[in-house]
């Protein structure tokens, strides 16, 4: 399971947009780099990020080699009721990451 960080506000207001911040530890290998022995390092990027809130899809992203290493994403969401916000991502090698945070509607 890949390492990452997820941040949502401690509490949110019903129907008011709040910011979700995601940071994923990943080299986002472009395929253009070479190692110390001159061997090409194969492309390996986080290609897919999927975010759900209380089980239904809220946001998704398709990333390319043009996204910086250790990708940072911040976007907005609204909630009608409290629920779990889940971020799932996977890279070219099929490795996966998952993070969850409780969104509390106060």
């Amino acid at each position: 399971m890949m390492n990452g960080r997820l941040q949502v506000p401690p509490s949110v207001k019903k129907g008011e947009p709040f910011e979700v911040r995601v940071l994923m530890q990943h080299p986002m290998e472009t395929g253009f780099r070479r190692d110390m022995n001159g061997k090409a390092i194969p492309t390996n990027i986080v290609n897919q990020v999927r975010v759900t809130l209380a089980g239904s899809e809220l946001f998704s992203a398709e990333l390319g080699t043009g996204l910086s290493a250790n990708p940072y994403l911040a976007f907005y969401a609204m909630a009608d009721a409290s629920g779990e916000l889940v971020v799932e991502w996977s890279d070219d090698r099929g490795e996966k990451g998952r993070m969850a945070a409780q969104v509390t509607v106060a």
Binding site: N3, G4, Q7, L23, Q25
Partner: peptide, 12 residues
């Protein structure tokens, strides 16, 4: 403190 990529290593 959230977006500082170094914090990924600290967390680990």
């Amino acid at each position: 403190d959230f977006a500082n990529p170094g914090m990924l290593w600290v967390t680990k």
